[in-house]
Amino acid sequence: MSDEPLLRVSNLTKYYGSRLGCADVNFELYPGEVLAIVGESGSGKTTLLNTLSANLEPTSGEALYRMRDESWRNIYELSEAERRFLTRTDWGFVHQNPADGLRMTVSAGANVGERLMAVGDRHYGKIRDTALDWLGRVEVAADRIDDQPRSFSGGMRQRLQIARNLVTGPRLVFMDEPTGGLDVSVQARLLDLLRQLVGELGLSAIVVTHDLAVARLLSHRMMVMKGGHVIEAGLTDRVLDDPREPYTQLLVSSILQV
């Protein structure tokens, strides 16, 4: 991990009219670090993720991002063209429902290749080779490259979505419940894969999840949200083993034991 953070978030607040989405969020994210945002449904974690990924405009506060040229830019002050370029090259966004993040009517190869073509790749053979390489890395069989994601299982779709996001070598990936809706054995395999990829590529990631096990496996640090506020933050193991806030203690103690 480098000494300088990748993302600096200060006093980030988002209101929907008079209703609070999330308030006064402050944190720094370092290269190679995985941050989990946990909390119950309605606690503002998805609002926070959508605001951080510039899908939503915050009501106040700023998020400074260290660009590839080492300059610090407030992501809400980028022009739309710059922001869209950033989100499809240096960032990735893994949706809970793969259908939201994939083009369901074009083949798996084109799904992976789209970002490459968007940044100006115009050599079919090279695009296809890269797509094949990435399908291999996320354990999708090479002979499925020309199949549409419609014919894929839930787990395969999610892995394809991950490949599609990582193909341009992003430095920061946002994930919204990446294992939601998958059965337990598929979840385990996906988590394994994610952990391996994050480690290999030195990615930073912000993962929203309601599943504390996912946070435990993937993340280095975590933030616990309740009612739009961050009530506790710290190293994942510390927060889960020694929760300080009563709400966090409740959350940790409500995990089902088999």
Binding site: R103, S107, G109, E114, M117, G120
Partner: peptide, 22 residues
Amino acid sequence: RKMHALEEYGLMHVKLYEDIAR
């Protein structure tokens, strides 16, 4: 409209890619 405005035409090549793949 936004894609035209920002000259984001990668998608057009996705269509051609699909043609070749099929």
